[in-house]
């Protein structure tokens, strides 16, 4: 699927859609960003509560096209700006990381 398909998931609000055509082939759920860097695969969407600019740097480093920020947390402006500059899309949801992961797993037919 693509980033555009993430935008269609129930309960996901699009904060910024940078490049909706980018491929999403997997997902990684985690709040410890060093663990994300160490273990994430390419083209994964990141499911996390880490709503700050440094998360964008981690996604950029690990070729992640999108982030889903969970538990109703909101993204600061500098994070959204950095996402735009790095072709990364951001979605916010009131879902927990578990529920967001389940929804994405279904969308990926896992």
């Amino acid at each position: 699927m693509t980033v555009n398909d993430l935008a269609k998931i129930d309960g996901f609000n699009t904060i910024i859609l940078s490049d909706g055509s980018l491929e999403v082939s997997s997902a990684y759920t985690g709040d410890l960003l060093s663990d994300v860097i160490a273990n994430v695969g390419d083209d994964s969407v990141l499911i996390t509560v880490q709503a700050h600019k440094n998360t964008i740097a981690v996604c950029s480093l690990s070729s992640m096209p999108a982030i889903v920020i969970c538990n109703g947390r909101s993204c600061p402006d500098d994070m959204i700006k950095a996402a735009k500059e790095n072709d990364i899309s951001i979605f916010e949801t009131d879902d927990t990381q578990f529920l967001a992961s389940v929804k994405i797993a279904k969308a990926l037919n896992l």
Partner: peptide, 9 residues
Amino acid sequence: ILANLGFLP
């Protein structure tokens, strides 16, 4: 910093 972010901003 290194554990939580994975890098030093």
